[in-house]
Design a protein around this nucleic acid. Structure first.
Lengths: 109, 109
DNA sequence: ATTTTATATTGCAATATTACGATCTATATA
DNA sequence: TATATAGATCGTAATATTGCAATATAAAAT
């Protein structure tokens, strides 16, 4: 099928998996790291730095934008993408709760 | 294509995205939450609880196992799956570093 | 030895993702 | 106004993912 049965899961489970999916690609991690380091971002730079075609990078940026992880504003000719603080904090919170709920090793395995 | 160009990214970027990909499905999040809560897991329970076919759940468990996130030992007739502490800690560390490198809002967007 | 129980594997159909060339759009500059 | 520049969108090919029925496997109980 290729179609996730979202309706049988909770809102939280679907939201978290959507955010994780947006992060789950090396190019998108690289893009985010680049934004995090420079605290700003112009798509053109990424094309030179990452070694992917301009259309491909634009598509990855779109996915990050759709997930709400980044936001962009027009800056003259180019577009400045940066982290969306609200989503980033949400991600930190949700993931922190999820990962933090592991209480160490069990006896069974 | 559908084929990620892994060779142009760093080992860290590829590793983190692989782990995130394994987590990026509501069913796999639900499975992990179930393991985290009960500190043990038997596949059969999940089939009843999640509303997915047994084959589908077995497949999700396999993906989590392949990513090293869970491990399973044979327990009589059934198999006991639980968190792999090493990978979980790695994930916490890598993700913590990644998410934590965001230093608050910028002036540009 | 046969049957039951629990889980894995196989095969397949539907859909999603990744990547890129080509093209379109909008702004800035000559 | 024409042209250059930055980025988005479209179309398409290749591959991956999701889900399940059917079947296989392996241990336990009868």
């Amino acid at each position: 099928m290729g179609l996730t049965k979202s309706e049988i899961f909770t809102k939280e489970q679907n939201e978290l998996s959507t955010l994780l999916k947006a992060l789950a690609h090396p190019a998108r991690i690289a893009i985010l790291q680049r934004i995090l380091i420079s605290n700003t971002c112009i798509c053109g730079d990424l094309v030179e730095e990452l070694g992917l075609a301009q259309a491909t990078i634009s598509q990855h940026l779109k996915e990050l934008k759709n997930a709400g992880i980044i936001q962009g504003t027009i800056e003259g000719v180019s577009i400045c993408y940066c982290i969306n603080p609200t989503t980033w904090r949400l991600l930190e919170k949700q993931l922190g709760a999820f990962l933090g709920s592991y209480k160490g090793e069990t006896t069974c395995c």
